[in-house]
């Protein structure tokens, strides 16, 4: 089987939500979309960004799980919590450095992107990568990615002092060897503007 990897390029996202819809078609979490699609700053920009599970080598979610319910497959895919074990504490949800796991209150279980394991384990593309029209989510070979895209794929991250290596790659400029989470990006957002009854952006924010 040809070795394919998952690549994410936030800057290519056009916010079409095809990935969100397709994700719910996956057999391992039928009817429930596991992908996150964030609108970055609705007032200032149209920028959106998808977030799938990055499938860490040493997942923080599994380390903080009190029930030992989060397991990796031999090929490095971190699965949703095991249904018999998950005790619905949400430790994984608030600890994941990428903000990926979802707490499904109705089922009292953590669920997350499992790279459409029913598909990717037999060589098919995950649903989101199958439908993404802009290449923000791509499942292909490393060679193909390096040949067709500017920048390089990197799977090394640093959150404060915590170094994280992931199965999924992010596209960054060639001189980058590791993505370090910068304080600049997590400064508090400016205080909200005065309420304007015709502020569509505000209405959309409230509706979320």
């Amino acid at each position: 089987m040809i070795r394919r990897e998952f690549f994410i390029d936030y800057s290519r996202c056009i916010g079409c939500k095809a990935c969100v819809q397709a994700c719910a078609e996956c057999d391992t979490h039928r009817g429930t979309s596991m992908i996150h699609l964030e609108t970055i700053e609705r007032r200032d920009t149209l920028q959106t960004a998808p977030q799938i599970c990055m499938h860490c080598d040493n997942p923080v979610c599994a380390r903080v799980c009190p029930a030992d319910a989060i397991k990796k497959t031999p090929d490095g895919v971190v699965q949703s919590s095991l249904k018999p074990r998950c005790i619905a504490c949400s430790n994984c949800v608030v600890s994941c450095p990428f903000g990926v796991p979802k707490y499904m209150a109705e089922f009292e279980q953590m669920m997350k992107c499992d790279m459409c394991y029913d598909r990717s384990s037999i060589g098919k593309k995950p649903m989101c990568a199958t439908v993404c029209p802009s290449g923000a989510l791509t499942y292909t070979t490393m060679e193909e990615m390096q040949r067709t895209r500017p920048g390089i794929p990197v799977n090394s991250w640093k959150f404060g002092g915590e170094e994280v290596t992931t199965k999924v790659y992010v596209m960054v400029p060639r001189e980058t060897t590791r993505v370090e989470i910068d304080l600049i990006q997590i400064q508090p957002t400016p205080p909200a503007l005065p309420a304007d009854p015709y502020d569509v952006a505000l209405m959309l924010e409230m509706a979320q």
């Binding site: 390029d9 936030y10 800057s11 996202c13 996150h36 964030e38 970055i40 700053e41 920028q47 960004a49 977030q51 949800v93 608030v94 600890s95 994941c96 450095p97 990428f98 903000g99 990926v100 920048g151 959150f159 404060g160 915590e162 992010v170 596209m171 960054v172 400029p173 980058t176 993505v179 370090e180 989470i181 910068d182 304080l183 600049i184 990006q185 997590i186």
Partner: peptide, 25 residues
């Protein structure tokens, strides 16, 4: 500066990843 990544909510962590990539480019 005494901050802790645990004090950032999951949604802001996700947004921050895209902003970080933006910053790199």
């Amino acid at each position: 500066h005494g901050m802790h990544y645990q004090d950032i909510c999951p949604a802001c962590r996700r947004k921050n990843l895209a902003l970080t990539q933006d910053g790199l480019w």
